[in-house]
Simulated scan of single mutants.
Amino acid sequence: MEFGPDGSLYIADWYNKIVSHNEVATTHPDRDKSHGRIWRISHKSQKPWPIPNFF
């Protein structure tokens, strides 16, 4: 969890269907190492920041 410059709370998480990580090899194909989520939590009164132009 981290607060961003816009005052919102950002949370990063992921889901892995392997429950016991120590009993399964790190090379097992069911380990998901490429998908995750970033949640942005802000108050409804917060105004959105302008989207920067990266091009």
Rank of each mutant, 00 (worst) to 15 (best):
M1I: 15
N22R: 12
R31D: 01
D13W: 08
I38E: 11
P5N: 01
M1P: 14
I51F: 12
P48R: 08
K17S: 13
R31K: 04
G36W: 01
E23I: 14
P50V: 14
G7F: 04
A25C: 03
G7V: 01
F54P: 08
F55G: 07
G7R: 05
I41F: 09
A12T: 05
F54D: 04
I18L: 03
R37G: 10
R40V: 04
F3Q: 07
K17A: 12
T26H: 03
H21G: 12
V19D: 06
S8D: 07
K47I: 06
K44C: 11
I41Q: 03
E23T: 15
E2G: 15
P52G: 02
A12C: 10
W49T: 15
P48A: 03
S20R: 11
K33G: 09
K33L: 01
K47F: 00
I51Q: 11
D32F: 01
Q46K: 08
T26W: 05
F54T: 04
N53I: 05
T27D: 10
I51V: 09
H21M: 10
N53E: 09
V19F: 03
E2Q: 15
I18R: 03
V24F: 01
K44I: 15
D32E: 06
S8H: 10
L9G: 09
D30V: 02
A12P: 00
S20W: 10
F54C: 05
K33D: 07
P50G: 06
D13A: 13
D6F: 02
D30P: 00
M1S: 14
V19K: 03
S42P: 06
G4V: 07
P52Y: 07
K17C: 15
G36I: 04
P48T: 02
Q46G: 00
S45D: 11
L9F: 00
A12I: 13
G36C: 01
P29Q: 06
R31N: 10
V24C: 02
